[in-house]
């Protein structure tokens, strides 16, 4: 049983929390609930929604573009998630080495994360240009030696997704910072013990560093799954989903359905499928984490 004072304190606490609570309810919970309802409706924003049951979901399963956009998104995730995780881990390991210029390198690696997406998209668009781009200018002499042609990057259906995945490495700065924090938490005595047991550099990395930072790797994996499956801004600015819809990602198709084709119900159904997909992949990651994530104190 709560006293009057406790009730009053509770009300005061809620009063202080109310801006956030109202924001959560109005801008998060309500849209989530409404989107679930709209996903069962024919709704174009202008006329009241008409309930149509599971028709949007059934239409999605027969929609070739839906499946294609899903396939493209999963392909992108399959390339860029491991690449982002391994590259950022490698960079973090290098940046963790005590050298005089360590702060400079850390700054340089983090710097691209501060560049606005629109600016980096424009920059990379020209870098990937098959005729004038910096990348092909650098690759040309090497590839010519092997009688190979430089890739057409963004202008080819086969290359556009790998190109965007390569570009995603440009902004690994945030992930690197998280890895660095994890690396600095690894107790020195574990390395000393491993050294006494005769472990070399690779042995220490495999047996000490990776198990000790496995919760950080797991965190970065989850964030990457959530973020990468929602990719939208970069292809929107760089490729407009082309060529021949080869970079028409899931979220891009969702956006077009919602705001270009005004099929808000259909887009809501896509949003819920996307949520289920993220949940499923995150669930798999959590399930697998029992085998490779080690928490201190457990």
């Amino acid at each position: 049983m709560t006293t009057r004072g406790e009730t009053r304190n509770l009300l005061k606490g809620l009063a202080f929390l109310s801006p956030w609570l109202v924001g959560l309810a109005v801008f998060m919970l309500l849209p989530i609930v409404l989107s679930l309802y709209y996903s069962l409706c024919d709704y174009n924003l202008f006329q009241p929604p008409v309930f149509i049951g599971s028709e949007n979901y059934r239409s999605l399963f027969n929609d070739a573009i839906f499946w294609r956009s899903l396939r493209i998104t999963l392909l992108y995730a399959a390339i860029s998630i491991p690449m982002a995780l391994f590259v950022s881990l490698g960079v973090a390991l290098l940046l963790n080495v005590k050298i005089r210029t360590q702060p400079l390198f850390r700054t340089l690696i983090f710097f691209p994360s501060l560049v606005p997406t629109i600016a980096s998209a424009m920059l990379w668009k020209w870098m990937f240009n098959q005729q004038l781009g910096l990348i092909n200018r650098m690759l040309d002499p090497v590839l010519n030696f092997f009688h190979l042609a430089a890739p057409p990057w963004l202008d080819s259906s086969n290359w556009v997704v790998p190109s965007l995945a390569i570009m995603s490495v440009w902004s690994v700065g945030n992930t690197v910072v998280i890895y660095l924090a994890g690396l600095q938490d690894v107790p020195r005595e574990l390395y000393e013990a491993a050294e006494l047991d005769g472990a070399g550099a690779l042995g220490r990395l495999w047996n000490v560093t990776l198990p000790m930072i496995s919760p950080v790797i797991f965190f970065n994996l989850i964030m990457a799954i959530i973020g990468i499956l929602q990719i939208f801004d970069t292809p929107f600015m760089m490729t407009k989903g082309g060529p021949n819809r080869a970079s028409y990602f899931f979220t891009y198709y969702l956006y077009d359905n919602a705001f270009t084709n005004m099929k808000m119900g259909y887009a809501s159904a896509m949003g819920w499928i996307q949520l289920l997909l993220v949940l499923a992949l995150t669930g798999i990651a959590f399930w697998s984490s029992k085998k490779w994530v080690h928490y201190q104190g457990k």
Partner: peptide, 20 residues
């Protein structure tokens, strides 16, 4: 549904020009 049709035709032109 001209916006949808336009997007479809744009993709076809791109695929046609790329001989895909």
């Amino acid at each position: 549904i001209a916006p949808e049709a336009g997007a479809e035709l744009t993709a076809i032109v791109q695929g046609v020009l790329a001989m895909e």
